[in-house]
Amino acid sequence: MSADTTSAIGPVEGARRYDVDNPAPLIEAPRKRTGKTPRSTRGNFEMAAWLFMRLSGVVLVVLVIGHLLIQLVLDGGVSKIGFAFVAGRWASPFWQTWDLLMLWLAMLHGANGLRTVINDYAERPNTRLWLKGLLYTATVFTILLGTLVIFTFDPNIR
């Protein structure tokens, strides 16, 4: 291996057109942002929603499968569930937090999933508007109701 193979430029095409005294003209990148470029009116909502689906999904796998195991599998399965069972579990802040987190993440995850489905299949703008209005109303209602129930649960209601 001789030294000149390290350079792909031969003596002819390697003749320099520009040097320190004769610098190459600076070409601006075609889409370079300048002071005159209008600021984007779109945020990163869709990217945030995409990321949220994945992050909440991982957490929900743990929360929901744990929930199914407790409610449907362990200790007699569904047969043991009743007011007393709920009162026993919600006496602990750990399970209150578990259920609260599961409620919020599952509702937001599900609402965003349904939003995507509506966007995909409802073609008329008006249909989309109404379906999403219904979806958001039901979602806010369910999250607030569930949160209220967890926070105001009273084991001595009767």
């Binding site: 007393a84 599900g110 369910t142 109701l145 649960f153 009767r158």
Partner: peptide, 27 residues
């Protein structure tokens, strides 16, 4: 499966909310 689970979740929060009505209603 996602849509089905979401609809169940909605019903499930409603039925659990009955613990605020009375133990009998929930049971």
């Amino acid at each position: 499966t996602g849509v089905l689970i979401f609809f169940f979740l909605f019903v499930h929060v409603l039925d659990t909310a009955l613990v605020r009505v009375s133990p009998e209603a929930y049971d």
